[in-house]
């Protein structure tokens, strides 16, 4: 008999999703679409799966909510083996966002967002409140958008609704398959920023698929890079991947400019600053700002240093040298 799936009641471990030697071979295929893969994903972690088309990202993602059944291995979500949970019940507690969005075209935006709560038998009033709260959360005015239909929204707006719909029943886990892949580059940048801010507030465990390494570097706490043969080439933080790519494949997949890209991942608070002197000519910045953002500010202001609040001052040269030094120490270790 399938177990009921109640998120948040699982074993109090820090692991939300555990892939244990999971593999998939589709019928009539002579190669694994996903090779035996083991990853533990921590509660609140943002894991990105990245790699060229056909490397098994989508298949891996869809095995987590059992839209695809694994050929081998086990997947544990919130302390339960998903093989023993009713698939529909499992999916109602896992948010799912896809590139084509897939809003139901004949239902209003409000009805789309309220679908899962409705399936979970929430009261009408509670659903109504939740829908408005979520539309607000994703930056759509509820009074304007609640009664509109999907066709009346732009692609970017539709995907906001897609995200709101996935969050509706407050699932601990979100699966996202190239959610911003079909959206123009400028809007995509906005959506990525907003989504990062949103994630900082809601702290979901997210598995996010993309083929875009820049998106992966920007969003992920950790990144799993797969090669064409579905081999896991590297699993590490963005900074570590830029600093010490595991092999030639990873190096070429990252492409040029790893050093420059690292500037947008490092935070000025992490660099050694000179204790503040009286000659505070630089502009003031927060320790949490990235080196690239601070460089941008300094250059735009026509200055050559910045004061990191509570830390000290940093010159342009300090920043570049410190970034390079971290590079060497990371490579050496």
């Amino acid at each position: 008999m399938p177990e009921q799936f109640h998120p948040g009641t699982g074993a109090q471990s820090d692991v939300e999703i555990s892939l244990r030697e999971v593999s998939k071979r589709y019928p009539a295929s002579d190669a694994d679409a996903v090779r035996p893969l083991s990853i533990d994903i921590a509660r609140g972690e943002f894991l990105v799966l990245v790699g060229p088309s056909g490397c098994g990202k989508t298949t891996t993602l869809r095995m987590i909510n059992r839209l695809v059944e694994p050929s081998g291995g086990e997947i544990w979500v919130d302390g339960k083996n998903t093989a023993h949970v009713d698939p529909d019940e499992l999916r109602r507690h896992i948010g799912y966002v896809i590139q084509q969005v897939g809003l139901l075209p004949h239902l209003s935006i409000g009805e789309n967002v309220g679908l899962v709560p409705k399936m979970l038998d929430w009261s009408k009033e509670r659903i109504r409140q939740r829908v408005d709260e979520l539309l607000d959360l994703v930056g759509l005015d509820p009074d304007t958008y609640r009664s509109r239909y999907p066709k009346q929204l732009s692609g970017g707006q539709q995907q906001r609704v897609g995200v709101a719909r996935a969050l509706a029943a407050d699932p601990p886990v979100m699966l996202m398959d190239e959610p911003f892949g079909a959206i123009d580059p400028i809007t995509r940048g906005h959506l990525q920023d907003e989504f990062l801010k949103l994630q900082a507030r809601i702290r979901k465990t997210i598995v996010f698929v993309t083929h875009d390494i820049d998106e992966a570097l920007r969003l992920g706490d950790r990144i799993a890079i797969f090669d064409e043969d579905a081999r896991l080439a590297q699993l590490d933080t963005p900074l570590a991947i830029l600093t010490s790519p595991a092999d030639e494949f990873v190096r070429s997949f990252i492409g040029d400019g790893a050093a420059i890209r690292r500037l947008s991942l490092l935070r000025v608070g992490d660099l050694p600053a000179v204790p503040e002197t009286s000659t505070g000519t630089g502009i003031e910045v927060d320790p949490g700002e990235t080196v690239s953002a601070v460089l941008e500010k300094i250059l735009a202001a026509g200055l050559d240093s910045a004061v990191v609040r509570g830390r000290g001052s940093l010159t342009v040269q300090d920043m570049l040298l410190a970034t390079a030094a971290r590079d060497e120490s990371a490579v050496a270790s």
Binding site: N65, L67, P87, D88, E89, L90, R91, R92, H93, Y96, I98, Q100, V101, G102, L103, L104, P105, H106, L115, V116, M119, G162, R165, A166, L175
Partner: peptide, 27 residues
């Protein structure tokens, strides 16, 4: 019926009966 719509509906835990009734037949 748009396969993305069906995929999304199944992905949110819609049973096949409900899928037929509230998604596929209306569309």
């Amino acid at each position: 019926v748009d396969s993305a719509v069906i995929d999304a509906a199944r992905g949110m835990g819609m049973s096949s009966g409900r899928l037929l009734r509230i998604v596929r037949l209306p569309l």
